[in-house]
Every structure is written in C-alpha cells, then in structure tokens.
Design a protein around this nucleic acid. Structure first.
Lengths: 346, 346
DNA sequence: AATCGGATTCAAACCGCTTTGGATGGCGCA
DNA sequence: TGCGCCATCCAAAGCGGTTTGAATCCGATT
C-alpha cells in the first residue's frame, strides 16, 4: 500500500493525501479525518526511502565507533550511551546507524557518510586531546556532538560531558577530609581527554592542601580488572603504601579491591576506594546501598542529552555550538572510611 | 556532484555512466576507464538515498535491542557482538541500524521496520523459549538470523549459536574428573534459551556419573557481580558446601571469587570455579595465561558469522534457513584444581 | 551492395514521496 | 452582477539514481 494507491481509493490526489497525513493546514479537516482513517485501516506507512530522497534528509544519525586497532577494544560504556541516545532517536523517528571502524579508516568513514548522504549528523565518541576529527567534521560540514571534550581544540564544537575534573577533585577532597594523605590515582589512558581532566582534578585537590603528588602513586592504563589488580598489588607492596585509591572505573576498582583483600586488608576499613561509576545497567554499584563510594554520572543520560542536542543542531544548523556540562554525584558507599592511624595491619 | 552532472561533463548519458560505475558489461572498456577516472577525480559518490529508492533495497540491516522494561538492562555482550557484525556490514556496504526499544514495543518495531522499508533484514537478539518473535518475523516476511536458539519454536529459522549444552557438560565433566562431587551452578535467568541449555548440559554430565543434582546448588539469576557474590556466599555457608562453581558469566564468576576469598579460601585450591567467557574485548580473562578455567566462545566472532549469514539470506531469499553451531573451547586457567580431600579449611 | 548482429549508447520510465504553482468553487461585499 | 479572496484540491516537476526498450554504429557475412 503506497501513497498513490491510497489516494486512488480515496478519490483524492496524492498531494492532498500527503498533506493530510503530514498535518499541513491547506486541507479540509473532514478530508483529513477521512484520510487518516483510511491510512490506519489500510495500515499505510510511507516508504522511508522515498521520504528520504524527496526531502533530502537522511532521517538518521551516525555513531562511528572507533576500534583501536592496537588492542581492539570496544568501549564498555557504548552500550549504555547508545541505549540512551536510541530512545531519543526513536521518539523522533530517526534511525541510529552504527559504523564500527578501525581508527585508520575513521576519516574516510566520515567523508563517505557525508557525501553519500547516509546520515544527517554524527556523535563523536571517545575524544582525545586536540582531536583531529573535530576540525574534520567542521570542514565537511556534518553536524556533530562530541561525547566528552577535546582539550586544545581550536574549532568550536558542540559537546556533552561530565565534569570529570570537579568530580575527581571532590573525590580527592573527600578522602583528604577523611585524613588520607597517600591517595593513589588509578587512571585510564591519558591520551583520552577525560583521563587528563580527572588527573587535573586530583592534582588540584592535593595542591589546595599543599600535598605534593607522588608519581609512584599515579598510573595511567587501560581500565580492566587485571590492570587494577596489578596496580593495586604493586602499590600496596610499597614501603609507604597508599591508604586510599581513586579508580577511574568500576572494573579497575574491582581489581584494586581484589588486591586489597588479597593482602588480608579490608576495603573501607584499612584501605579506602573511590571509583567513577558510569551507572551502567549491567554493572550496578550495589543493589540498594552502594558498595563503592563513587563519583556517579549516568552515561545513559548523557546519551539521551547528546542525541537531543544533535537533533536540535540538525533542525537548526548554523547556530552557536551548544554544550552541556553534567555534574557527577558523589555518592557515599562502604568502600571509604577514615584513614587508619598508626602502621597498617600486618 | 551527482550522476547527471558527471554525465554531462563526460558527454555521456546518465545511463552509461551508471552502468560503467556498476560494472555492467554493455559498456566499452575505454569508456568505463574514462568514467571511473572522472568519478574519482570529482570525488563522486552516488547518493545512498537515491540508490535505495531506485533499487528498492534498504542496504541496511536492523538490530533490535530489547530493553527489558523491568530491569532496564542492556546486555553487556551487545557491544562485542555488534562490533563483529559491523565489520561484515561495512565490508559489504550495508548500514547497521540499531533500534533500542522496550520489549513491549518490539513487535510494532519489527512491523514498522518492515513496512517502512528501513532494513532488508534483522538480527534477533536474546531469544527465549518458544520466542514469539520468530513466527512474527516469518509472518511479516523479514529475513532474520537469531543469535542463539529458541527451544520449542515450531517455525524453522536461521541461527548462530554456541553449543551451550555441550560446553557446560564438558565443564562439569572436567570438574567431576578432578574429583568434585558438589558442583554449584550459577546460571543466568532461565527464561533465556541459552541458560536452559547450560543447565541441561550440567545435569547431563551429573546424570552420566550417577550423581543426583542438588537443587540447593542450582541458581538462576541475573548475571551480575553482586548476584554472583551473594550466591557464592550463601552456598559456601551451607553445611555441605560446594567444592566447585560453574558460573554463566565472567562477571558473576568474579562475584563468586570474592565470596570465596572472603571466607579466607583460595580459588583454584580450596574451591574451583569455571566460568563462561564470551571473550569480550573489555573483559579479558587474563592477559596471557587465563585466570579462570572457562568455556570460551567469542561473541564477536558470532556477530561476524550471523551478519554474513543474514546478508546471504537477503541475497538469496527463500532458501532453507541455515544455521551454525559453534563449539566453545574449554580453556584451563588457574581457577580449578583437584577437589580437596577431607574437610574444608576453617 | 545489402543485410545482419553484436557492441555501445541513449531517451525515458520508474522508484514513492514532497512541494511548487496553479486551478476550482463558494462566499461576502460593493 | 461582478469581483476578489479564501479554502481546498490537483497536476506536474522534482529528488538522484536504476533499468527497460530502442537507436546507432560498424565490421562481418552473403
């Protein structure tokens, strides 16, 4: 059942039927009702491909998922971010098209997406320092929103980000207030923009209390359980071990916890741990009470917001690039406590 | 730059240019070379929307991601499955469109996808027992491939699945060979088809050795760390605790491990653990040597295979639905050992 | 020399919708 | 009665490709 056929049955022209269905004013309300009814009755759905060609809009947005060729890692937060964004898209009748692409091909992908007209805009994931994709997208004129920010980028751009600096600053302050002085930072890879900001927040808080950072307490690695465990174990074996850890993700936090418990110590009593919690649906920080004290910010919510921003940008191009800074909550769990006085047990 | 304009510059008709670019035989090779060169020079890319309308094909496949409304869980294996499938799609110039949809709207989504012509086929995720989506898709005539299987489904359908039954049977046998007699099953929710099959494999292995299953050792919950921990703790506190655990995912296995260590026991020495390892890129089972003994099957590879199967189905419809059963590897890690003789320590 | 057939090329229809630029008809008003 | 103005509807021209059916060219065949 297509428009022409429906029009035929109604004894109307395709023009009128199209207008009736799309809510244009120049059609009699009685007629509109008739058309609507007939459309429903015959289960008519306009062909998306035709709409797209006729309107020149793709009614789709792209998410280009870079596959770091070296370690082939798929970022675990994607699933939730996309779930959030997806809700927004379906509500607005947009398709979400994903391109999984090795990062060598990323530039080509954007250019192709643009010239073939597959999408009306894209979300940029996992930005780095002075990310070259930002000027690229600007140059080819494809509307985009960055999930995160890119320190050093000269081009203005739209973004949605968590206030990572402030989150880690607050977390550090919280630990300092509990009396901790040796606080380890288990950070993600620092070519990623968010990792840099987190470190800055950590350093700022230390500096404000006049505490010199100890390089031996600062690491920057992939955020896996293994890596968290290795780092935790190594640091706790030091002569002057940290009494608290600040971990960039729940997963690495779990590794740290394992290292703590392996030494017969108790998390929250002997050693404190704060993690950053993306509030992933398949990785909850406890069921009712949080296990870990955490800086929490829902990545799913970020997805929703980024998607809305992008649709706005597509609808009204040429405006000043908007942005949104989300504050993370500091939620108190059972993994933190006052710094132990005296020598550590064992 | 579009086809008409390119044709104009070349002094050819759009017909010829189109044919030259698409490799049709009825065009002089000299002309073809000229056309190709001009296309490259002017950076011509045919407009996808026009191709789609003209050919009647969407050149896109859909992945409908159900969002269980109750717990709003995004399945953590999606990211990797999709990464695998995505590679296949880009190689074949197909788009991957994701619809995130609450499972109440799932039927509508499939029907809409079909009648609006957004996709040429879909991948069905997370099948349940006698899954109603299978006859639905068959009825509306949308080609599809199921990731997993659906016990009890009368309609034939295409699928790609891991041999879950056999994997868990082998894992159980392995533990039995090590002398374990009280083996706990920490299974996923058993309305999911894969969970049922895993339990069957476990039961089969026990039965083959004449061991009666103990309901107190069999659980079926969401596969989270918390849940694994709770189950592990409860079971280990029983009067006659299990000496081994079989966990349906690495995450729940991590919870079990924590419960073990909390009791001062050592995994692999006092209590054995086998997990199922989907080989997720962000959740590796150890770096060089595996930590957990595991039944391993790459979900990313499954994505690749399912995507290829679907593209095949789209290209040649009406054939007998193909399927592919992937065997899981049983890889030996450090989490298993001979059953302790005598009473458990402590 | 006339005919034939293969190799090339082209004009035009078509895919299913939107949108522009009129037509048509009824009604109020001078 | 004549005119202008709305309200309503329609024919036709796109959108940018693919594909059908036919034309043209040319060397080969008879």
């Amino acid at each position: 059942m297509n428009l022409k056929e429906l029009a035929l049955r109604l004894g109307l022209s395709p023009t009128t039927v199209s207008r009736a269905l799309n809510g244009y004013p120049e059609v009699n309300e009685t007629t509109r009702a008739r058309v609507m009814a007939a459309a429903k009755r015959h289960n008519y759905r306009p062909n998306t491909r035709a709409i797209r060609l006729a309107t020149g809009r793709a009614m789709a947005v792209g998410h280009v998922i870079p596959l770091a060729t070296r370690h082939e890692i798929v970022n675990p937060v994607f699933a939730d971010f996309i779930a959030g964004a997806g809700e927004t898209y379906s509500r607005n009748d947009y398709d979400m098209v994903l391109s999984v692409v090795s990062d060598a091909d990323e530039e080509t992908t954007y250019r192709t997406l643009r010239s073939k007209g597959n999408v009306d805009g894209v979300i940029l994931h996992a930005p780095r320092l002075d990310d070259p994709r930002i000027p690229l997208l600007r140059e080819i004129g494809l509307p985009f929103v960055v999930h995160g920010r890119s320190t050093g980028s000269a081009t203005p751009y739209a973004w949605v980000d968590v206030n990572n600096r402030r989150a880690f600053q607050r977390a550090t302050e919280f630990l300092l207030d509990l009396g901790h002085r040796r606080i380890a930072l288990v950070n993600g890879l620092e070519f990623m923009d968010f990792a840099i900001r987190r470190r800055t927040g950590y350093l700022d808080a230390l500096a404000a209390r006049g505490i010199a950072p100890d390089p031996a307490l600062m690491t920057s690695e992939e955020m896996t359980e293994i890596s968290g465990h290795r780092i935790g174990a190594r640091m706790l074996a030091q002569p002057d071990p940290p009494t608290a850890f600040l971990a960039s993700s729940m997963i690495s936090g779990m590794g740290v916890r394992r290292a703590i418990e392996e030494r017969g110590l108790v998390m929250g009593r002997d050693v404190s741990v704060i993690i950053h919690d993306d509030d992933l649906s398949y990785m909850k920080n406890g069921e009712d009470v949080p296990i870990y004290t955490a800086t929490r910010s829902s990545v799913r919510e970020a997805g929703r917001i980024a998607a809305e921003m992008l649709l706005g940008l597509i609808a009204a191009p040429g405006q000043e690039p908007p942005h949104r800074l989300l504050e993370a909550d500091l939620i108190i769990g059972q993994s933190t406590g006052p710094a132990p006085t005296g020598p550590a047990p064992r």
